[in-house]
């Protein structure tokens, strides 16, 4: 990560950053940037409030992307999971990445289902693949893996080739069919 002190957000984002800082619990949020991305790191306790305010007051009305990464053994990582929200304003085209985090053993963040309906499936996907629970999501169930599946495959401690689930089926012979 680039050092937060050295980074000042571009002119276009100054008002948005100021707005985000005005949310309770966000006064010390970290602003960073890389290439054309401007990132705000918001503590999970305040993430819902901050995102709600960014939508209603800063006009960031489009939730472009919502996903997560597992930072297990990542260089200098403090938290295990990072969750990002890529927001954009349809009107002005300003784009902002909001990041928050969660930790083992019970990774949880607040759901933004009420703010953007588009978050519905994206949050379910993160729940399915990482096991992060989105509190307040009305229909949080697995979406890509079978309901009975027991692991979260995109976690770093899950092997690429799986734990043998893919071979756990009955083989049909010609006579049986």
């Amino acid at each position: 990560m680039s050092t937060p002190e050295a980074y000042t957000p571009p002119e276009s984002h100054a008002a948005i950053v100021a707005l985000a800082k005005s949310v309770a619990g966000c006064d010390s949020l970290i602003v960073s940037g890389f290439r054309d991305n401007v990132r705000l790191e918001v503590p999970p306790a305040a993430s819902l409030e901050a995102l709600r305010k960014l939508r209603s007051h800063a006009g960031l009305d489009l939730l472009v992307d919502l996903s997560a990464a597992d930072y297990l053994n990542y260089p200098n990582a403090v938290h295990r999971y990072g969750i990002w929200y890529v927001l954009e304003s349809v009107e002005t085209g300003i784009r902002l990445v909001v990041k928050t985090w969660a930790d083992d053993p019970d990774p949880r963040v607040d759901s933004v289902f009420d703010v953007w309906r588009g978050a519905d499936w994206m949050e379910r996907e993160v729940f399915d693949l990482f096991g992060i629970v989105f509190e307040g999501h009305p229909d949080l169930r697995r979406i890509l893996m079978p309901d009975e599946f027991s692991s979260h495959p995109l976690r770093k401690d899950y092997p690429l080739r799986g734990d043998g689930e893919r071979h756990n089926f009955h083989a049909l012979s010609r006579e049986e069919s």
Binding site: F34, N37, A69
Partner: peptide, 9 residues
Amino acid sequence: PPVDEVYAS
């Protein structure tokens, strides 16, 4: 690559 993250579309 730099140790960082980026979204581009």
